[in-house]
C-alpha cells in the first residue's frame, strides 16, 4: 500500500492566516543529517507572529529537526546539509550577513531536558544579556526580575536568587530555562517538548506560562501530547516522515482535519 502523505496547505487555513503576520517562513526546506537520507522533505510552512504554534507527529518525523533549524542549532552537527530557505522576519537566516549570535538572541530556545547552568539562579537568568553585552547591574537586575515574573517563577525564588539553580525542582528548573530565554527579549521562543520530563502539576504550570506568553511572543512548541497541543496552541502542524502533512488553526485541525492521515493520527489509530 502506498500512502501519499504529500501535504498542501488547505484553503481554509489560507483564509485564517490571511489575517496573520508571518514571522517564520520556510521555502522548500530540505534537510539532511546524512547525505543519503533527508530528515525534512520540501517543508513549506508559515508561522504566524505572536501566536502559539504546535508541531505534532510520530516520533522521528522531524519535529525537533525543523524546530532546531529556526535558530540554527543544527549547525553544531557536522556534515549536515540544508536546501531551501528559512526566512525570519523576511530575512534568510542562512545569509552570510546574519550573525549567528544575533539570530539566537532573537530566537530563544527551551530544551526538552531542563539545562540550568551550575550557577546561581540570578546568574542563570542574567547569562543571556551578559553574553550579549549588557553589563549595567541595575539593568540586569531589572531584566532578571521581569523575566522571572513572566516565567511565573519570581514568587518562588525571589528570596533565594543567589542559591544554585541546581537546587530547584525539575519544574522550577524548566521555568527558569524559560525565564533565561525571555531575558534576551527574543521575538520567538522555540520549545522542544518542554514538559515531557515533568509531573502533571509542573506541566500545568508550564502550560500556564506559555498561555501568558501568547500575544507577546511567537511560541513554537513541539509536543507529543495532543491534548497539550489542543490546549495551548493557536495553530498546529502535523508532520510525518520528514514532511509537513497538514497545518491549520488548532481547532480546525483537531475537529475537521483535511487529511485522512491526520485524522488517523489524532484519533490514535497509529503513531
Amino acid at each position: 500500500m502506498v500512502i501519499n502523505i504529500k501535504g498542501s496547505v488547505s484553503s481554509e487555513t489560507k483564509n485564517e492566516m490571511a489575517n496573520e503576520n508571518i514571522i517564520i517562513e520556510t521555502k522548500d526546506l530540505n534537510f539532511y543529517y546524512t547525505p543519503d537520507k533527508a530528515a525534512l522533505i520540501d517543508v513549506n510552512i508559515q508561522i504566524p507572529e505572536k501566536k502559539v504554534t504546535a508541531f505534532i507527529g510520530p516520533s522521528g518525523c522531524g519535529k525537533s529537526t525543523l524546530l532546531r533549524n529556526f535558530n540554527r542549532m543544527n549547525d553544531l552537527i557536522p556534515d549536515i546539509k540544508v536546501e531551501g530557505e528559512i526566512l525570519i522576519e523576511g530575512q534568510n537566516i542562512y545569509d552570510p550577513s546574519v550573525r549567528l549570535e544575533d539570530l539566537r538572541k532573537k530566537v530563544g530556545m527551551v530544551f526538552q531536558k531542563s539545562n540550568p547552568f551550575p550557577m546561581s539562579i540570578w546568574e542563570n537568568v542574567a547569562f543571556g544579556p551578559k553574553v550579549n553585552g549588557e553589563s549595567n547591574i541595575s539593568n540586569l537586575e531589572e531584566i532578571v526580575e521581569a523575566s522571572l515574573v513572566q516565567a511565573d517563577l519570581w514568587r518562588e525564588v525571589k528570596d533565594r536568587l543567589t542559591d544554585s539553580a541546581l537546587d530547584l525542582s525539575g519544574g522550577q528548573q524548566q521555568r527558569l530555562c524559560i525565564a533565561r530565554a525571555l531575558a534576551n527579549k527574543p521575538d520567538i521562543i522555540l520549545m522542544d517538548e518542554p514538559a515531557s520530563a515533568l509531573d502533571p502539576i509542573s506541566t500545568g504550570k508550564i502550560e500556564e506560562t506559555i498561555d501568558e506568553l501568547r500575544g507577546k511572543y511567537t511560541v513554537v512548541i513541539v509536543t507529543h501530547n495532543m491534548q497539550q497541543a489542543a490546549r495551548v496552541s493557536d495553530y498546529t502542524a502535523f508532520m510525518m516522515v520528514g514532511e509537513l502533512v497538514e497545518f491549520n488553526d488548532t481547532n480546525t485541525l483537531f475537529t475537521k482535519p483535511d487529511k485522512e492521515l491526520t485524522e488517523e493520527y489524532i484519533t490514535g489509530r497509529f503513531g
Binding site: 539570530l103 538572541k105 539545562n115 547552568f117 543571556g128 530555562c177 530565554a181
Partner: peptide, 20 residues
C-alpha cells in the same frame, strides 16, 4: 545540554567555553 544552552542564548563559542 549546558553547552547547547549557552549557545542557544546567543553566546559565542569562546564565551561558552569560558563560562560553561
Amino acid at each position: 545540554a549546558n553547552k547547547e544552552g549557552a549557545l542557544a542564548l546567543g553566546s559565542t563559542k569562546w564565551q561558552m567555553i569560558r563560562k560553561i
